[in-house]
Amino acid sequence: MGGTQAIRERKDGRGGLGNTLSGIAVAIGFVLFLGGFVWGALVYQPYTVPTDSMVPTVQPGDRVLAQRIGGGEVRRGDVVVFTDTVWGSSPMLKRVVAVGGDTVACCGKGGGVTLNGKPLDEPYVDRSGGDAAAAGTTSFEVKVPEGNLFLMGDRRGGSLDSRAHLQESGQGTVPRSAVVARVDALAWPSVKTLERPQVFAAMPGGISGHGPLRLQVAAVLAGGALVVLGGAYGPLARLRGRGRGRAGSDGR
């Protein structure tokens, strides 16, 4: 009787190595799927872009994913989320144009910004209004204090940024400690990684790397696939076993 039952299980797919492997696949899938979500929630914070000051990089109303970081991890070119009581009580998004020790000035040839005496090529800036609008109308030259950041919006003609606070302590800059996160990707309505400007790559400190978002997404997708495939194994194996059984009966 026991041997007959074992043979029947092997034929209809409900026993043996296949069932064991499918169970392992489902277990691993759940771990990857849930682990990826938990990991992402610990590392990333979603934000809604409140204004158009960072156009064209992000649009007002866009949802972005920002990696929780300390101010010491910030590099030139990063789009950061920060809170500074002098600027306002709500979190804001701006781009880091200069760090402590840099001298940033406006306006150079064609209305552009200079960094440490050299024209800064900024492909991320909104140039829909021409070169002059790309820098705005405020002339300045600031030596950024150590431990501080000079922040500007990508839509220079309509951004209340470090230029609007030039008369305040620190010459419009904010301390690194004000930064709470760095934008890594757009999540809605478009989905894409936010690239780091290569113009800053050769400067001291270089540019920041991307966070673990891609790895987290891969873990979630792989986990979901394992759960679906592992869960589908049993029913598919049973259908296959019944098909073979009917074929054997017809052959008799």
Rank of each mutant, 00 (worst) to 15 (best):
P123N: 09
Q198Y: 07
G245N: 11
V99A: 05
K192L: 09
G112S: 05
F37N: 11
R95L: 00
I69S: 08
G13P: 02
R246Y: 06
Y47V: 01
L42H: 09
R238V: 04
Q171L: 11
K11Y: 12
R8K: 15
A247Q: 13
P235M: 04
S208Q: 13
D250H: 14
G251W: 15
Q216A: 12
R155Q: 12
G170T: 04
G72M: 03
V97W: 14
F150Q: 03
R14N: 11
Q5E: 13
N148P: 08
G157W: 12
G170P: 08
G245V: 12
V104P: 09
R196S: 14
P212M: 03
V64R: 00
S53K: 05
V97K: 13
T193F: 11
E73P: 12
L65T: 10
F37D: 08
G61Q: 08
P46Y: 08
V180K: 15
G130W: 11
A247M: 11
A6T: 13
R68L: 08
A133R: 02
D84C: 00
V144I: 10
S90V: 04
T20K: 14
R68C: 03
R240S: 01
I7W: 15
A202W: 14
G147Q: 10
L221F: 12
V217Q: 10
D62V: 06
V49W: 07
R63Y: 10
I69F: 05
L120G: 03
G72F: 05
G36F: 04
G40F: 04
V79T: 14
G231H: 11
D78I: 06
P123G: 07
G40L: 03
D154Q: 07
G243I: 01
T20R: 15
L160A: 15
V74S: 11
G206E: 10
E141F: 06
G136F: 10
S22N: 04
A134W: 06
A25P: 05
T48K: 09
F33Q: 05
P212R: 02
D161R: 05
S169W: 01
W39V: 11
E146P: 03
G23E: 04
L32V: 06
G234I: 11
K118I: 03
G130E: 14
